[in-house]
Amino acid sequence: MKTASTEKKAAGKATSKEPIDILIVGVGGQGIILASRIISQALVYAGYDVKQSEVHGMAQRGGAVSSHIRAGEKVYSPLIPYDSARYMLSFESLEALRYMSYIYAGSTVLLNDQKIDPPSVASGQQQYPPDVIERIKKKAKDVRVIPAADVAFELGNERVVNVILTGALAGNLPVSRKIWMKTLSELVPAKLMEINTKAFERGMQFSNR
């Protein structure tokens, strides 16, 4: 389906602020809300109109969580239409499959290879899907797997997975390094700035740019 944003992309018209839709998905407690705030704020500093939407409440209790970030000259809906997320950042492997409707052939999917068993898998009633990447590739060609948990372990802090993944997306966005650092310093506690800067930079190595 064509949307206002995909039509613009298809036309290939290089406006100064081409629309960028980013969907972040994962599990409550993974730090998706902080990652969303960092990315949204950086896009604001880069001169975009930005809307970001997430659902609180029940989702914090280990449920599936999604956050929509939309940037452009002027953003209307806070929710991304189906088939139009330029980027999907999946904090957990199978969660990417839950939101397949949002991506399209030209999407870039950044996939944390971490697996968190849903209750039905933990209790042995269901199987964790073995073919996540293959299923995503049926719709979007560009799938990049990021071993964020391993990197976090190397860095000695398992809590920085979200900042590693933020870095992995960051390198794809038209936002300067200076802006990213300013945003990070505003949104992470000062005493954790050093580890988070390292995490962000390790994440950036997974970007194309």
Binding site: R61, A64, P118, S120, K139
Partner: peptide, 13 residues
């Protein structure tokens, strides 16, 4: 590819 049948649910807990 959108239809992902039998995907384990992740309800809040």
């Amino acid at each position: 590819a959108d239809v992902v049948e039998g995907l384990p649910n992740r309800p809040p807990n």
